Amino acid sequence: MHSDASMKIAHVERVEASGRIPAQVGESPVWREAEQALYWVDIPARTIARVQVETGTRTDWVLPEKVACIAFDRNGTVLAGCETGLFAVTLSDANDVTVRRVAAPELPFPDMRFNDGRCDRQGRFWAGTMVQDMAAANPAGVLYRYDAQGLLSAPVVCDLITQNGLAWSPDGTTMYLSDSHPSRRLVWAFDFDIDSGEPRNRRVFADLNRFKGRPDGAAIDTDGCYWTCANDAGVLLRFTPGGALDRTLELPVSKPSMCTFGGRDLDTLFITSIQPATGANELDGHLLAVRPGVRGVHECDYAGLL
């Protein structure tokens, strides 16, 4: 195994108040600047959660089916990747939700759902599918693009087991995608046509078989570096645009799942996590925050209206 670069123990803060029930599978953190709030999901609990970071006030909304990834349109409606498709979700202050399915791809197996999702710099929403039984190692997952006109593409990338790691370089011309299945553990980079939304020239960007953990959700900083949550290894790995590992931040959870930059100066990395099957500690499954010394790139909302 390749030695780790610049190993550091990060000063990590727990964002939620003590006593909160941890998420089973925390995912898809999204920073809402206008609210100074962080949204995320708990997939098996079918929940979208929000915490007002300065006050600690938390609100939860329960959906009719598992929700794995979210984005917002400019009016604050949620675009959510769930089990049977993409949904427009309206969240009320009274914890009520209104859901409407806006796209439903034909899934080749019954036990599938969407997984990781994020908007590109032009506001197109990208999300991939996976077979929920990871032990099956079924490469039936594909990556879709949902454009501002409300059209779902044909599969753009195929043969994915556990799709993850979507991110775009600051100028939007490089797209990143990973497969976090234990048999893959790869991050790819693509040349990205910002006008057509087509990724080309796929190549291996980072092979985590040489490092620690599995490449789960990711974020980009203003240096163009790619931060990936190394699931099962309890660390964040930062790769330069050239694919070199230059920083490793230790975390007090074993299964970090996705990260995003937020805070007033976009200098805080918010990190969701997953409860391990055995041996969970008091922070596993909770929302964490760390200041890594760099700023992030503002993530785009969905460009259409839901």
Rank of each mutant, 00 (worst) to 15 (best):
V25N: 04
G150A: 04
Q122L: 09
T55R: 13
D116V: 01
N115P: 04
V30T: 08
V30I: 11
R100P: 06
A137M: 12
I70M: 05
P139C: 06
T59A: 12
E54R: 14
G141K: 07
A103P: 01
P29E: 01
R124F: 10
P105H: 06
T84S: 14
P108G: 08
I70T: 07
R118N: 12
D73S: 05
A34F: 11
G123S: 06
S92G: 15
V142P: 00
P64K: 10
Y39P: 09
V30D: 01
M112G: 04
I43P: 00
A45W: 07
P105V: 03
M112C: 09
T59G: 07
Q132N: 14
V78P: 00
V99D: 07
G128H: 06
G117A: 03
D73W: 03
E54C: 12
G123T: 04
G123V: 03
Q36A: 14
R32D: 14
E83K: 14
C119W: 08
V41M: 01
V41H: 00
E35I: 05
R118M: 12
A140H: 12
W61P: 02
L107R: 11
P108R: 08
W40Q: 05
V41I: 06
A68F: 03
G128P: 04
P64D: 11
L107A: 09
V67C: 08
E33R: 15
C82V: 02
V99R: 07
R145V: 02
W40V: 05
S92T: 14
A68E: 02
V78R: 00
E83R: 14
V99N: 07
C119G: 10
V78T: 03
Q122T: 12
W31K: 06
D93V: 12
T59M: 13
D73P: 04
V51P: 00
Y146I: 05
G128T: 09
V102W: 00
C82R: 06
Q36W: 09
A94K: 15
D42W: 00
C82E: 04
T57E: 15
A137I: 07
P29L: 01
T84C: 10
C82M: 13
G117M: 01
A37M: 06
A135T: 10
W31V: 06
V62Y: 09
Q24S: 15
V30E: 05
A104H: 13
A148W: 10
N75R: 13
D96K: 14
G150H: 04
P64C: 08
A135S: 13
D73R: 02
G128N: 07
T77Q: 11
G76Y: 07
C69D: 02
R32N: 13
A140R: 10
P29K: 01
P110T: 10
V99C: 15
D93W: 11
L143N: 03
M112P: 03
R121Y: 10
Q122S: 13
R101V: 06
G85K: 09
D60P: 02
Q52T: 15
W61D: 01
F72V: 07
R32Y: 12
E33A: 15
A80N: 02
T59D: 12
E83L: 11
V62F: 09
D116L: 01
G76F: 08
D111F: 01
Q132E: 14
R58P: 11
T98P: 02
F72P: 04
P110G: 06
Q36R: 15
F114C: 09
A23N: 14
